[in-house]
Nucleic acid binder design. Structure first.
Lengths: 215, 215, 215, 215
DNA sequence: GATGAATGAGTATTCATTCAT
DNA sequence: TATGAATGAATACTCATTCAT
């Protein structure tokens, strides 16, 4: 019914309001230094209200990660489905997608890393856990596919097809962290973009089969 | 003076004893979940004693990073000074050095990252800050040198010589974190080594100039 | 008026619905661990509605006691009014009544005790307070009467006629609490009944004058 | 060693200091309304210090019960060991002992009852649990012995020898609670003593075998 | 120097109660 | 009347740090 639906929508809006506030606070102070009161006041709500929408602090934090994972998944799947593209073109598209993912939420790597800690996992509801696991698995799988295809078609070197996607992701995370640690993150996004571009170019060159055949 | 010196030596021994204990505790529980009492009891000392050697918890943690940085610096400088090696041979030596650095302390990346947080920096003594900054600057400089030399000699592509070293470091960090997040870190070091090897090989291929000239 | 009256009746029905739910929840979790939401959901109402019928949590709880007191009062008065019975027969009837009171609500003693706490009393409305006080006074009075009559007729020992009723009540409460603390309360009502029977028998023997005269 | 011993003694003194403060606060406000800060400030200590001596609030509360149980045990065992006394004399001594137990801590019944709640039990350390269980078992056993002996010697009626001790204890608890609920507890101890005396006398008369034989 | 008992500020979480709809 | 989302005060417990011995 209309009323039911409007309520549902309203509820979702509140969740987003809280998530947005949480993102601001967490990215400024980090998980441990952020208090639930900080977040509540950023969201212009009372602390108690936060607990109507999120089981606890960990689950609120993990919800940020879920949001990024959803976006990552959509983008990566989309690349993967463009069957008419060559592996090299797909890699290019993938790189573009990764830029956007980072743009969507620059804290992606830090969130992902936090998510791993056993303490965190203990406090999450099974539902959220399942969602996160599924999205991670699917996204990683989609990236792997792109490289596997490249290897099969003789375009990319065969160094453990899985490893290629791992290294691709590592490079992405590494550059972001590196930039973050230089605190350039916010002030100069262009520098990050340029660095990522070079990193991905080097990677692309490194995985192309012609390189090896030309020796 | 003899006595003076012996005291100094004794003092340094205690510092190391504490640092070793701290490393064990921090690497098991992470910074926030580790208590000063945990560390004190691991070091078989009382909590109060820790404060005779370290200003506070942050400074104790940062001291771990300093220790790794010292090792990193020594190894990297050593590679840099071998003037008779070609840029490609130096890169190979550098990669070996990075393995060892990781072996020396697998928490290197996490430590380095923690070190950046403004909250941390606020609590460090200027003396420690200076030491850390200097060592970081020198180590990064030495790595940069290797790549700059390669570019100058026409062996490595010219993509912002600085960027090459940044990306090298990013790749290193990214792989370690990636593995850490898969919790393979401790159980299967060989897998990490293999992944790092592939990563570095791809990187090496990617930066070699022949690739581009062969096109 | 018809409409007025029907509303009144409806209102009373709701109150009872809430009281019944509250009884279930309180007896399972105790006063402090029971939340208003627990009770609301047991009553299939919203938390807000509870406050339309009861001033606060304490008053809701006290209403349970009022209900038992009403039952106790009815039963005890009834015994007292049977003028043709001997004191010993009345005591027997009284004992039967007490069994039934306990059956009506096994939490009677705990409720009564909770009712005494000054914190509780502070939160009750004067109207409720008055009702409770009146019923207590009357019930105790009726029990006292039975014993006083026995003393006057030379059937029961004269040890402060008031004290006899106090002790009778104490014995009743004590046995119930003792059983409750053994957690047999719910699982084995027969054991409680048997213990109560022995207790009352001992008491009856103890207060009979012949005992003393036989010495 | 002397130093070791003095420290131990000092530590025990602190525990007692806290227990005494806790007793005052708990008996005034009850368990739930008493805060750890109340107790700390009553003991002229900081809240944190309480946790150096007691695991949590429940365990602090339970420690009060332990203290009473220790006293109860000593007194009851002492009566039981006086082999030259007749069952009737032992009962008299037991009654005296119970007066003293109540004097030692009038909250005895409330403490004991609180101790039963499953929520409480969940939070106690096994060590404390064991101590409490053992003392309870032994004390109850000693009381039972007295009655069993009386039954065997043909002085007390045989109504389940165990039940006699249960009913004795119930009577004791009941009277104390009854008085407590009349809030006479503190103001008029003499009235309580008199009531207890009458209660025990009635009980004693009730359990004496001659009563029945005289019929 | 070394100790470790004491401190007390800091915080996640709960829940009785309110009030706009 | 009835709702139930929002409130925000209240509190047990932790732990970095200090300081008397």
């Amino acid at each position: 019914m209309g009323i039911q639906e409007r309520k549902e929508r309203e509820k979702e809006r509140r969740r987003q309001q809280i998530i947005v506030a949480a993102k601001r606070v967490f990215s400024e102070k980090g998980f441990n230094k952020s208090t639930m009161e900080d977040i509540a006041s950023e969201a212009e709500l009372s602390p108690g209200t936060l607990y109507l929408y999120f089981k606890n602090k960990e689950e609120l934090y993990a919800s940020l990660s879920l949001r990024i994972l959803q976006y990552l998944h959509i983008r990566v799947e989309h690349v993967n489905k463009e069957t008419e593209l060559s592996p090299e073109q797909k890699l290019e598209k993938l790189i573009e997608a990764m830029y956007d993912v980072y743009d969507f939420d620059p804290l992606i790597i830090i969130n992902m890393f936090h998510l791993q800690s056993s303490e965190t996992l203990k406090n999450l509801s099974p539902r959220l856990m399942t969602q996160i696991e599924e999205l991670s698995r699917k996204s990683i799988g989609a990236i792997s596919n792109i490289f596997r295809e490249g290897v099969v078609k003789g375009v990319f070197i065969e160094k453990h097809p899985v490893a290629l996607s791992d290294i691709f992701w590592s490079l992405f995370s590494g550059v972001i962290l590196w930039e973050a640690s230089k605190k350039i993150m916010n002030e100069d996004k262009d520098y990050l973009k340029k660095t990522l571009a070079i990193a991905f170019e080097i990677f692309s060159q490194g995985v192309k089969i012609e390189k090896f055949s030309s020796k």
